[in-house]
């Protein structure tokens, strides 16, 4: 396949960026999207140019590090996959592909396609945990019975890999899907009840402080989420928040 890549290049956080065109030829449909970018970077390096910086780590859809807005969609046109799991067979010979960083004030660009998603870490640190006694008297988690239905829903919420596609997809750059998954995974378990009030209040406060937008229920996040995190989690977080507000 022969393609034209239109890639966002930006030297550093304080420099203005722009779209640069890169023609690329002999792309195999079996390559992953990141492998295609590896090939491009090898060509750039051999020509003595700066390679395109992009985030990646596990390359098997579990770490949430890879990002990229591809033709106007986070992780590209495929569903239920991260960019590392996206294959070039989703594109046609002759296609033009826009590749941009995830955009949100709360995700500032560091360089080229790499954005700083530490705002997610700070939301998580504000309450996305349970406190346990680790002094040697730790109670086995399995000693507290949990009904299967709740355990399954909690597990589903816990599969969020913190990739940020929900924010990137949302027209409001809202982080509600991510935050609600991190609230829900504990809200559904007895272990999460002790700190439930503080958790949701603090995490939502941090989410707002980071400058993410308001949710307007467009549902774009749910469609683009590689892990199929459901909007039900946002409704649950709203209930948790209302409950906590009255305390």
């Amino acid at each position: 396949m022969n393609l034209t890549l239109k890639i966002w290049r930006q030297k550093d956080a304080n420099t203005q960026g722009k779209i640069v065109d890169y023609p690329i030829s002999e792309v195999s449909p079996d390559m992953s999207f990141l492998e295609m970018l590896d090939v491009l970077n090898e060509q750039l390096i051999s020509k003595g140019e700066e390679p395109v910086e992009f985030d990646h780590d596990c390359r098997e859809g579990i770490c949430g590090t890879c990002s990229l807005q591809i033709n106007g969609e986070p992780h590209g046109p495929d569903r239920g996959v991260t960019t590392c799991q996206l294959h070039m067979r989703m594109f046609k010979d002759g296609d033009t592909i826009f590749i941009e960083p995830f955009r949100a004030n709360a995700f500032p660009v560091i360089k080229d396609l790499i954005v700083d998603r530490s705002s997610f870490d700070r939301i998580q640190q504000a309450g996305g945990f349970i406190s346990v006694n680790t002094s040697g008297n730790t109670i086995d988690a399995n000693s507290i019975p949990v009904n299967k239905h709740d355990a399954d829903k909690s597990f589903d919420a816990a599969t969020c890999i913190g990739c940020g596609a929900c924010v990137a997809a949302c027209k409001n750059a809202s982080a509600m899907l991510f935050t609600s998954a991190k609230v829900s995974q504990f809200a559904l378990l007895p272990q999460g009840q002790v700190e439930a009030t503080d958790r949701v209040m603090n995490m939502v406060r941090q989410m707002d402080l980071e400058g993410f937008g308001n949710c307007t229920n467009t549902g774009a996040c749910e469609i683009e989420c590689p892990k199929g995190i459901s909007l039900e989690n946002i409704a649950r977080m709203n209930r948790e928040y209302l409950k906590a507000s009255t305390k």
Partner: peptide, 30 residues
């Protein structure tokens, strides 16, 4: 107020943004 806040949560816009791929026209144009 919400519209203004939400617009300003992404100061640098996408060059290519395919909103129709994941949400309805109605939801994006309230």
């Amino acid at each position: 107020i919400l519209e203004a806040k939400n617009k300003s949560a992404r100061k640098i816009k996408y060059v290519s943004y395919n909103g129709g791929a994941n949400s309805s026209w109605m939801s994006r144009n309230m």
